[in-house]
């Protein structure tokens, strides 16, 4: 078993995650915290929160299917055990984001139809590209798709959402902070485990790079749809953050990647997010010996 895998043991996971940053939390946030009233009281913001949370549930369901599916394809016990912890992390993410939908007022009986109706078709296609590799038992492509592309995207999206919500909606920001810590660990495993496997299987590079290009296209298309559809809600939230409508005057500025999220236009935010994710992809893919492929613009 590669030595680095000892850092990804279940014992370490137990101590750092459930017994660490998740201690004293319920569904990822402190007991008693609730969704911000500005979200619940504004139909526009509530709808946008539901729409975006549906995409998080869809993404996490894909991650749960992928990480559990990879266990049987893993070539060593250490990777199987790490993936066991990742499987439970992803299941927890499905649970906390599903709970958020309930907290936003979605009825249990409406959950599945709502998710089906609002799941972005490009995000569904993104998941299908990855799960096809998992179904074939392709461990190397599966880990790149799951732990570099999907987790890299999730990590950056969660960070942006955290920055947006930390002042406006602390309960959701707290939920996100636990998922960010999890994703950081998953990405770390992907980088550490796959580099050596890519060296052992150079013949797989071209196929994996094609997968990255295809997944990146669907990711960018999902971002484009999401920011276009939620533009009115984003502008309303920015108005609240800037205190211009008097609802929450004096709230401090939300900054991310050196930019003010309170003043960027929705298309500028989309561009900032896309650039940040793709930049991360390039760095991480280079580290594991793959060449980043620029996706077709959606």
């Amino acid at each position: 078993m590669p030595d680095f895998l000892t850092a990804y043991s279940i014992q370490n996971w137990l101590e750092s995650c459930p017994q660490g940053y998740l201690e004293q939390t319920q569904y990822g946030h402190a007991a008693g915290e609730s969704e911000a009233s500005i979200v619940l009281d504004s139909p526009k913001l509530r709808d946008q929160a539901i729409q975006s949370t549906v995409q998080l549930v869809v993404g996490e369901r894909c991650a749960l299917a992928a990480s559990s599916g990879l266990i049987n394809a893993a070539p060593d016990e250490g990777s199987k055990r790490f993936l066991a912890t990742q499987t439970l992390d992803e299941a927890r993410h499905v649970e906390v984001f599903t709970q958020r939908l309930l907290d936003l007022g979605v009825r249990k009986t409406e959950l599945e139809p709502l998710i089906k109706e609002h799941a972005n078709p490009h995000l569904v296609a993104f998941a299908e590209v990855l799960l096809e590799k998992i179904d074939k038992g392709d461990f190397v492509a599966g880990v790149v798709g799951q732990n570099i592309v999907l987790e890299g995207m999730a990590f950056t999206v969660f960070e942006m959402l955290y920055a947006t919500n930390v002042e406006m909606n602390p309960k959701f920001a707290h939920t996100l902070s636990g998922t960010i810590a999890d994703e950081r660990r998953h990405v770390g495993f992907g980088e550490n485990r796959i580099g050596s496997l890519i060296k052992e299987h150079p013949e797989k590079k071209a196929e994996i790079e094609r997968m990255q290009k295809e997944m990146s296209f669907h990711m960018l298309a999902t971002f484009a749809d999401s920011f276009r559809e939620s533009a009115p809600a984003i502008m309303e939230a920015q108005g609240i953050l800037r205190g211009t409508n008097g609802t929450q005057a004096g709230a401090s500025e939300s900054r991310w990647q050196g930019r003010s999220l309170s003043t960027l236009a929705p298309e500028e935010m989309e561009s900032l997010l896309a650039d940040s994710v793709l930049k991360e992809f390039k760095i991480r893919l280079t580290r594991i010996g793959l060449d980043y492929q620029t996706p077709v613009a959606p």
């Binding site: 279940i10 749960l64 559990s68 266990i71 066991a84 912890t85 439970l88 299941a91 927890r92 499905v94």
Partner: peptide
């Protein structure tokens, strides 16, 4: 872990994920 893919609902998938970590 294989059962997660064929579990009939979200609750069963989440339970099986806890079982995966246990195993």
């Amino acid at each position: 872990s294989g059962l997660i893919a064929i579990a009939p609902n979200r609750e069963a998938k989440i339970f099986l994920a806890t079982q995966v970590a246990d195993e």
